[in-house]
């Protein structure tokens, strides 16, 4: 339990030496986004294809308030968490009524609804041009305009998020959500109101997405239309699956791989998504537990060799 945490701490310190601080920040922001999705995907067994709904909504609302009312950064983050949770409550309420394929399609369809609203409502969201000019306000005398300072801020929030998610998945709620994933009928019969717990998972996941959305908006100073599009929803599912949806750290590793590849390889080779596609096929066919499973299998293999 200690080792992954130390690895993450070391990565946080080393990462800015290897990549630009903006990319380093994006990795941890995307990891927060992934943590939220994974509560649904990995723990509850619900494939949501609409996570960018909450990410984007929070980014737009908090971005608007930052831009025109110059609100405090903490307030912006709080509002982002609130908007993420509230939009997830709305979407989740409609989605948990159905299961399986219908559930997935509903999350997708509602995402599209939000996307086209943002697309059409140009006076607020800027439509295809995005919503530019979002400031990074000074907080407690610290100027976040310095990319490294902002990186430190993002890292701290990521660690807090990771800790919160760890507590949640190790709590009775985490157990109940996994019980729903394992056997919905029995979970209901032993006394859990399954739709209500699914909704709770949605709301918590939405809150994490909202936090990530606001951090993203402040990082790049803009809310691009993609932030609420299905591409973003797909990316976070993709990253989480590659990292490993079965474990707490899967989405963190997935985000690391996904953002790093997309930011560094994309400048070298325009067809880089091909690599991701191949990685995805390998994961789906051979490694359902993603990189986390590959890692644990490797250690198992090594320790069995050492014994011989």
């Amino acid at each position: 339990m200690k080792r992954p945490f130390i690895l993450i701490l070391v990565s946080i310190f080393l990462l800015p030496l290897v990549v630009r601080p903006a990319i380093a920040s994006e990795i941890w922001i995307f990891a927060i986004f992934g943590l939220g999705l994974n509560l649904l995907l990995g723990y509850t067994g619900l494939l949501s294809f609409g996570q960018s709904t909450f990410f984007g909504s929070a980014a737009y609302v908090a971005g608007w308030l930052l831009k025109f009312y110059g609100i405090n950064a903490f307030l912006a983050l709080g509002i982002g968490v609130g908007v993420g949770a509230a939009s997830a409550a709305l979407v989740g309420y409609l989605c948990v009524q159905r299961s399986g394929l219908y559930f997935i399609m509903l999350t997708f369809a509602l995402n599209q609804l939000f996307y086209f609203t943002a697309y059409q409502w140009t006076s607020v969201t800027g439509g295809e041009d995005g919503m530019p000019g979002i400031p990074r306000p000074v907080l407690l005398g610290i100027d976040f305009k310095d990319p490294l300072v902002y990186y430190a801020f993002v890292s701290v929030l990521f660690l807090i998020s990771l800790y919160a998610m760890k507590r949640i998945v190790e709590s009775p709620l985490g157990k109940i959500l996994q019980a729903i994933r394992e056997n919905e009928i029995r979970a209901e019969a032993v006394g859990y109101n399954v739709p209500r717990f699914k909704l709770l998972a949605f709301i918590i996941g939405g809150a994490f997405s909202g936090l990530a959305g606001v951090l993203y908006a402040m990082l790049f100073g803009i809310v691009p239309l993609e932030a609420i599009s299905f591409v973003f929803s797909g990316n976070v599912v993709f990253a989480t699956l590659i990292g490993g949806s079965g474990s707490l750290y899967g989405p963190v590793i997935g985000s690391f791989v996904f953002i790093w590849l997309s930011e560094s390889v994309s400048t070298l080779w325009a067809r880089w998504p091909l690599l991701l596609g191949m990685a995805f096929v390998i994961v789906v066919l051979f490694l359902r537990g993603g990189i986390v499973e590959a890692w644990s299998r490797f250690w198992l293999w090594r320790s069995s060799k050492q014994k011989n």
Binding site: S171, K175, R186
Partner: peptide, 29 residues
């Protein structure tokens, strides 16, 4: 619940009808 240990299987049922759900989201199982 196939992926759970036997203890976790019964624990999940025992918790449901327990006296209180305090710490539901925060306390370790």
């Amino acid at each position: 619940f196939p992926a759970f240990s036997l203890l976790d299987n019964v624990w999940t049922a025992a918790f449901a009808t327990g006296n209180s759900w305090s710490g539901l989201m925060w306390r370790r199982t």
